[in-house]
Design a protein around this nucleic acid. Structure first.
Lengths: 195, 195
DNA sequence: ACCTGAACACCGTTCAAGT
DNA sequence: ACCTGAACACCGTTCAAGT
């Protein structure tokens, strides 16, 4: 939950409180919230924040870790529950929605996926792998287009999440998913849809 | 080209030089380049920059104006040259590519489309209208999906442009266009494509 | 060990003072 | 009319000094 090994009780307390405060401030101001503001609100010196979270990504990773793990697990659940094509679509939808939870997270995730030094790298790679498995399964069942790989799916999710994060388009997020993601992922048009 | 009416020669010269310098710096550092840096490089006081370009959007608008007009005109050209579905696809591709010219412009454009006070509003609305005409024409010919409007197309372009603007995905931009935009826009799968 | 906060080098934006 | 640059209120990041 915290760092490895033993830590002084006050350090542990600072870490937890900092994280709690950061969650609120990042929820309000997005991924590029003022770190100074977070430290100040937590009643802690700026250096303390940097000690516990040496980079902004480290802080975001601590904030997002459990959700990433949940989404990775969710991919397995869906694969065991729904037919391949539906599992892929549902998971893509859930990922897209989640990524909109905090403003500006999409940008950071896309940057992290090819940046091994980023604290968010591992989570993003896992997420991409989970998506890739669902995608392959759907492709093998003939329920998804060929010519797409895990990175394409990751990009599709990121693009839609980014659109949903824009104030001017937020209320169209669901519709944009139907209009962009569904045709990109489905192998054949569904009966009753546009010719 | 400049402001309306007569201006002092020195003011005119400052305006032009500022714009020239800004083009280089925005090309290098993106839409959120330092305004101080631009003024400094242009050898001009910070207040002078603000006098000529009261907001960052005003500066970007001056930088992008002619390209926006060219893209709007290009839509008419393509409509008179290619079959409806192809015209739509080509224009969408050109818009997507152009928007990647300066880093971070996509973000500003999406913000401007629903912000009438933005200096970029008019250009973006024109662009959306030009796209909407191509889209409608393709839909009437049965060459594009129904259920999409001009804003959806604008969002599609913006999403793809944003993906192409991310370092981790830039080299996949063309491929992502094929994988995301093409199936979203085409009414029926092309013969020879994935089932 | 851990914490603090001043220090440094940057921002965007405004506005009194100059020509 | 137009220009200048100091002033103000912010940043992120580092690091000597404290406990």
């Amino acid at each position: 939950m915290c760092q490895a090994g033993w830590v002084r009780a006050d350090a542990r307390k600072n870490y937890d409180h900092l994280l709690e405060v950061a969650r609120g401030i990042v929820a309000e101001h997005g991924a590029d919230a003022s770190l100074r503001d977070i430290a100040r609100t937590a009643g802690v010196g700026l250096g303390t924040l940097y000690r516990h979270f040496p980079t902004r990504e480290a802080l975001l990773e601590a904030l997002l870790r459990s959700s990433f793990a949940a989404l990775t697990a969710r991919a397995v659940d869906l694969a065991g529950t729904l037919p391949p094509g539906e599992a892929l679509l549902s998971w893509t939808r859930e990922c897209t929605r989640f990524t909109t939870t905090y403003h500006g997270v999409t940008q950071v995730m896309v940057a992290a996926i090819e940046e091994p030094d980023s604290a968010l790298h591992a989570s993003c790679v896992e997420l991409r792998a989970a998506g890739a498995r669902l995608l392959r399964r759907a492709q093998e069942a003939g329920d998804a287009r060929d010519g797409m790989d895990g990175t394409d799916l990751f990009a599709l999710i990121a693009g839609l999440a980014w659109l949903g994060d824009q104030a001017a388009l937020a209320d169209r997020a669901e519709h944009l998913f139907e209009v962009i993601a569904v045709p990109a992922l489905r192998a054949r048009p569904v009966v009753g849809e546009t010719v």
